[in-house]
Design a protein around this nucleic acid. Structure first.
Lengths: 276, 276
DNA sequence: TAGTGGTCTAGACCACGCT
DNA sequence: GCGTGGTCTAGACCACTAG
């Protein structure tokens, strides 16, 4: 593997009589292969394989929804055992980067699936099943990044961002007011028309049309009072208590690519969370 | 394993020439051992091992903080390979029921550790490191379960519950007002004195003094306005927006054992969440 | 030095989905 | 029937901890 280009550790394809094996103090727990480290930071083989697979995901070699090579093929490609590849994919699967389907193969995760639609939407109805909201895009414009947004997006203040404001309704009741800031360079060509035309989750649009896949996010939730302008959009009195949800979303390499501020009505819905 | 007492599947210790192996249509993927099922519900061996270990945790055979038998010993006890035990413990570890420590062994998880203290407290300061709050117990009393509480605790309405009200402060600022309802039968003898005396997290007290370990919880978060009585306890004006966090905590076997309603000030703190 | 969990391998069979 | 992921085993060596 690695064609002799060490990252942290070089795995030598030596099956026996390892002459240069100076019983390293920092080796992997390999069985048949022998491994030594080039630096004090130890990294198991399966983590290196995981990193290599992640690179292929990030580079677009395997696109969302597509089938990736089977475990046996990856094992032979990387010159490791299937078990090692398996452990790497286990972690990728746990991180929702990849989805395994018994009998079919392993697929790159995509936001175009039922199961993904509610992964980032924690607002649930108090009674009954979760439903897909209706979207109404209020505004899309290009602007200069406010200082706070620029800081969160790891950009310079004043850099170009795309700003979106939209309202989501459940059963005709406006419930979520979202404001989004996206790096202008990544989302060039995003217009109100394309947003409105597109059916399905917005992250699906970002993934398919702009090649940016949201992987994880952090949220900060607060209680606030509805301002008059907000009250109009959400059809509530000014002073109504609302949840303020500040989200920062990340793509591969922990790169922030979205700042979102949502205001949620919680009279018939609640923000659901599992602690474990 | 199981001494011939089948749960879902019987693992026969037959190493070769399995005469009675009628090529079952629903067997485990065993290598050397042969396995057949007694019912149509298939359960992998490691899941059965996991269930057995969980039983020992639940029964108190191994108490919180204690070392459990090593993987090799469990493997020999259950007559399976170490790899199978390992996979079972992997899952228990992922569920925070157990903590692995390389070179030392596997320990029963406990709320008496640094790492556990913040597992169920999602309120974080906007700036700086998380700190342990100061507790002030306002009230402890025995009462009859309100209908809603009884429903959530899987009890009959009117059954005895213990009610606790307390205020938690950060840097002297009252920030959290908690109201708790606990099943009276499980927490008999819980008094305001014992709560006040006890240093450390409340779940640690529950675990040590009452033998009930909280494993997971669900929360429903809403935005509400401070009532006058609440405003006094949290030192805010009536009408101040607060987070309302309704928690139901579960112990082994998904049994609900706590209903908690927290009101959080979010002027200098926020409810933190990771989406992945 | 002994014992524990952590990594890695090789090989076997099973459940599943498709052709 | 074949290929995929899922389970299980046996054995090896490594990293870490403690006596």
């Amino acid at each position: 593997m690695l064609d002799g280009k060490p990252v942290f550790m070089v795995k030598l394809i030596v099956m026996s009589s390892a002459a240069s094996n100076q019983s390293s103090n920092n080796a992997s727990g390999a069985g048949s292969g022998v491994a030594i480290t080039a630096s004090p930071t130890f990294s198991p083989l399966y983590q290196q394989i995981k990193a290599l697979i992640t690179q292929s995901l990030q580079s677009g070699e395997w696109k969302p929804g597509e089938l990736i090579p089977s475990e046996v093929e990856l094992a032979s490609r990387f010159k490791v055992s299937q078990g090692t590849v398996r452990k790497a994919i286990d972690e990728l699967s746990a991180e929702n980067l990849v989805v395994r389907r018994q009998g079919k193969g392993t697929f790159v995760a995509t936001h175009h699936e039922e199961r993904a639609h509610y992964r980032f939407l924690r607002l649930m109805p108090d009674e009954g099943e979760a439903k897909q909201p209706d979207n109404r895009v209020v505004e899309v414009k290009r602007m200069r990044a406010p200082a706070e947004v620029a800081r969160l997006l790891d950009m310079k203040s004043g850099d170009s961002v795309i700003f979106i404001r939209r309202v989501q309704s459940f059963d005709g009741v406006p419930t979520i007011l979202d404001e989004l800031w996206l790096p202008g360079a990544l989302f060039r060509g995003l217009t109100v028309e394309r947003l409105v035309e597109y059916k399905g989750p917005m992250y699906g649009l970002f993934e398919t049309e702009f090649g940016t896949r949201m992987i994880r996010a952090t949220e900060r939730v607060r209680a606030v009072l509805a301002e008059p302008q907000v009250g109009e959009l959400l059809d509530v009195q000014p002073g109504t208590p609302l949840l303020s949800v500040e989200r920062v979303s990340f793509t591969y390499g922990d790169k922030p690519v979205e700042v979102r501020r949502g205001l949620y009505r919680t009279d018939t819905h609640h923000y659901h969370n599992e602690l474990s």
